[in-house]
Simulated assay, not measured.
Amino acid sequence: MHNTILFCLFFFLPAAQPITSKLDEGWWAYKDVVQGSFVPVPSFWGLVNSAWNLCAIGKRQSPIDIETSHMIFDPYLTPLRLNTGGHKMGGTMYNTGKHVSLRPDKAHLVNISGGPLGYSYRLEEVRIHFGSEDSQGSEHLLNGQGFPGEVQLIHYNQDLYANYSEAAKSPHGIAVVSIFIKLSENSNAFLNRMLNRDTITRINYKHDAFLLMGLNIADLYPDTTRYITYEGSITIPPCYETSTWILINKPVYVTQMQMHSLRLLSQNEPYKIFLSMSDNTRPTQPLLQRCIRTNINFSKQGRDCPNNRALRPQYRGNMKGTRRGSSGVVSA
């Protein structure tokens, strides 16, 4: 109630207008913070700053709930192409207070092309979303079900734009490869480098950073050429609708201990109260008139209609209380 009153004063009293000059790109949150000051959660993102109005009124917002009954098979969707130049990469891992973020160095560039993309896109950031419980943590949902986490590889269009900032607000600017995270006894080789105890404990608090070398980004990609794609937005303010999303049709795995380590990361500096970074997800947004395309050819299973509700991708969300749901892959 107190936050609501502050919000109303902010908008309707002329004397409150100078506060807008204090707004900055980081002045937003995923969930309520107990620090006595108002910080906008997702339902307020599009209201507190006119530059963020797409968060409230946009028609192509992300993330979404991927309903397999709405997917359309597109035979012209070719496999995604990953180009590392044959080199491993280095990068700096950050606790941003909102995400675990890995930003590659500029010495060895990583590019993607092909698939639904008409241009070449350069890797800008690897971002991890995760939940406080195993049944939530992914931004995208699959038939209404969440996963413990989601890895997002964020790229910008290097053919048309000079940098990420320019591309983010421009047509065909961003391509995000999204991979759901599930739990297993063994960890994905790339994520294991980021989430092993010696590494993850280096970024316990906001602004902590740690340099990693010798990373092979190809290790992060599951062994499949199948994916789901749609046109959407960046999932943080200012919610620009410039993103092509590519959701890989197989998950990657982390261990229960690594997921626990993620949940022990603080969104605050060490001298402030501990607030877990978990549940750093934006709620799903309406699909509206958009198409969800896929190169998963369900007709090979003897079904004629690509919109048949019985169709299943190669994974499912975590089912609470079922062992199969928390660590197994369901074959299509």
Rank of each mutant, 00 (worst) to 15 (best):
R202S: 09
I292R: 09
R312C: 11
R103D: 03
T201K: 14
P148R: 02
I179S: 00
Q256A: 14
I203V: 11
F130A: 07
L6H: 15
P270M: 10
I179F: 09
G46P: 02
W245G: 09
D159W: 02
C291M: 11
I128R: 07
L264A: 08
R290S: 01
R293F: 09
R81G: 07
M93Q: 04
N280W: 03
T225N: 01
K182Q: 06
F274Y: 02
K182F: 11
S101C: 07
H129W: 05
P18Y: 14
S327F: 14
D219V: 01
G85T: 14
N216L: 11
N249S: 05
P75S: 10
Y30S: 02
Y156D: 02
I292E: 06
S266A: 12
S138G: 04
G146T: 10
D279M: 12
I246V: 11
Y240Q: 13
T322K: 08
Q258K: 12
Q267W: 05
N318W: 05
L265H: 08
H207I: 03
L80I: 02
S138V: 05
P63S: 01
L191G: 05
E25W: 07
R81Q: 12
P222I: 06
T84E: 00
R60F: 05
F10L: 09
C8N: 13
A175G: 00
L117S: 14
P171E: 10
T225R: 04
P14F: 01
G58C: 05
S276E: 04
H99F: 07
V33C: 15
Y30A: 03
P79T: 12
P63G: 00
P63M: 03
R226L: 14
N83C: 07
A15D: 04
Y121C: 02
L102H: 05
P18D: 00
P270R: 11
M259V: 14
A209V: 14
N3V: 05
G90W: 06
L47F: 08
V330Y: 06
V176I: 12
E125V: 06
T244H: 09
T281P: 11
S243A: 13
L82E: 08
I57Q: 10
V329Y: 04
F11Y: 00
S299R: 11
V330I: 11
D208I: 06
R193Q: 01
T225E: 07
G137C: 07
I246G: 08
G131H: 00
F180I: 07
P251W: 08
V39P: 14
G36Y: 15
N49L: 04
P18L: 04
L23S: 07
F73W: 07
L77M: 03
M89Q: 04
P18H: 01
V110D: 05
P18M: 06
D105H: 14
P270H: 01
R290T: 03
L80W: 04
R324N: 07
T322E: 12
T242V: 03
Y230M: 09
G328W: 01
W28P: 12
P116G: 06
R60I: 13
P238S: 10
